[in-house]
């Protein structure tokens, strides 16, 4: 059975926009509204982050967003309730991104079951490389969840093949050597890297990390990307408009629209 994420890529006939938000940032209700706003403004897939106190793969913008969400009391219960509420009004594919300890403390099987029941379609875990991925991928397959795995410029050819064999949904191509956060420029090595990974994989290849402008999105699509993941550039709009919920919605929607227009 092809997953909702798989169908989105095969059915769209164009590269997809994965728009990333942190669950509970700045609170559950606003975060849910922002998911709907992102969807209305052209997000093809929503990536919802379950915040962690120590997110080592994330830069300052996402760190602050996670702190806001945790201060607002966000837990996996919040995450699943937000997903359920979104799913009750939307068929847009939804990817959960989090860190290993959040899943392990819930119980790996429990976390994947709850995520599936709430309506999530994929789960990516920032600090679980191939070597540690078995129990997570098994739980994902049991629940019909796509196990989204990461590829980096430092990933060897041999590892790439094993990652492709284990992954589901799409390959999350880390487009920078570094942490999340919009950059001025696309790393020129990413262009060749996308081509190489596409040649090795039947799964869609979607770069994320460091992407924040329409120009960058077009550049990545020209290189063959099947979509782009935009996180910090969107979340930064939340940080910028914390005092004004109406402006926040506008700002997040505007950023998503800008990214989406580059894909159409």
């Amino acid at each position: 059975m092809t997953s909702r994420i798989g169908l989105a890529f095969s059915g769209a006939g164009r590269p997809l926009l994965v728009a990333c938000l942190v669950a509970g940032d700045p609170d559950e209700r606003t975060s849910l509204d922002l998911m709907k706003e992102a969807e209305n403004c052209g997000a093809d897939i929503i990536e919802l982050v379950m915040p962690h106190s120590d997110p080592v793969a994330d830069g300052p913008v996402m760190q602050k967003a996670m702190q806001r969400a945790l201060s607002a009391g966000t837990t996996p219960d919040t995450l699943f309730s937000q997903i359920r509420n979104f799913r009750s009004v939307s068929k847009t594919p939804l990817l959960v991104l989090t860190y290993a300890n959040i899943v392990v403390q819930r119980g790996i099987a429990t976390f994947y079951r709850e995520a599936a029941e709430a309506g999530a379609d994929g789960i990516a875990i920032a600090d679980v490389p191939l070597e540690e991925s078995d129990p997570f991928c098994v739980a994902a397959r049991n629940e019909g969840i796509d196990p989204v795995l990461f590829i980096s410029q430092t990933t060897s050819r041999e590892r790439l093949e094993r990652i492709v064999a284990g992954a589901g949904g799409f390959l999350y191509l880390v487009a920078v050597l570094g942490v999340t956060g919009a950059r001025e420029q696309i790393d020129p090595r990413v262009i060749g890297h996308i081509r190489a990974v596409k040649a090795a994989s039947a799964l869609p290849v979607v770069p994320g990390f460091g992407i924040g402008t329409a120009g960058q999105v077009r550049e990545l699509v020209r290189a063959g990307a099947d979509g782009v993941i935009v996180g910090s550039a969107i979340v930064r709009e939340i940080e910028r408009t914390l005092e004004d919920p109406f402006a926040m919605r506008e700002a997040v929607g505007g950023k998503v629209r800008e990214m989406a227009s580059a894909l159409r």
């Binding site: 793969a57 600090d127 191939l130 540690e132 430092t154």
Partner: peptide, 20 residues
């Protein structure tokens, strides 16, 4: 060799695996 019983392992972003 990365484990002490059930403890240890390599829970890091993929980018660091080559360095490890």
């Amino acid at each position: 060799p990365s484990r002490f019983g059930v403890y240890g392992g390599r829970f890091v972003p993929e980018t660091l695996m080559a360095a490890l």
